[in-house]
Amino acid sequence: MAHSAGIVRLMQIFTQLSESIHANLIAGDSYLYILSGLKVTLLITLAGLFLGTLLGAVLCAMHYSGSKAVRFAARTYIVVMRGTPILLLLMLLFYVVFARTRLDAIHIAIIAFGLNSAAHIAEIMKAALASVDPGQVMAARTLGFTRLGAFYHITLPQAGAYARPVYQNAVINVIQWTSVVGYITIADLTRVINATGARTADPFFVIFLGIVIYLFLAYATHLLFTLAGRKTRTAG
């Protein structure tokens, strides 16, 4: 008897699951809605990181500037940005700074994540550059390399190898922090998951699905970085 009761229970679970899939993903092409949220999350992440990496490189270069004022500006920026919660920064830009412009909320989010990640990325770059043995750069210069040549052939590959795992963490952090952009009306992955769950009154399935997607993004990032790092060696 217990045996058949188990089978009945299993059947029930399957029925529930297929109902959940139908309600949350298939009915009314709901999966397209979730995909559109994923697209927004990816867009903010990638564009924000692109902006953050450029700005981070500028901040890092400012750190090596001869002018005290420039170095101070870079340091101040980094301290302030690293200490400011990204959500408050988003709200500041959305409700105050760009409130009167026609700038799209997604663009504001990209700017916010760019500004925020730049501070972290600048720190990563600084640490990576500091890890390169200056003796090797000097050795390259004595072999006839120009300053730029030595940077390109010696400093950059070694600093890159050093920075890769830390940068990977920064990327995953940005992916996860983009989940707060719903606060400024953006329909990102988290927000569409929330909306779908509310609509179908079946939040467990769709929230679980959301976690799996974020997990997949983190894993894919890890995979990409591992592939990119396979050819080059870390300094040793």
Binding site: G135, A139, T142, T232
Partner: peptide
């Protein structure tokens, strides 16, 4: 130039 600490390119 040859240095005391070699300074070979480690990568």
């Amino acid at each position: 130039m040859v240095y005391q600490n070699f300074h070979l390119f480690s990568h």
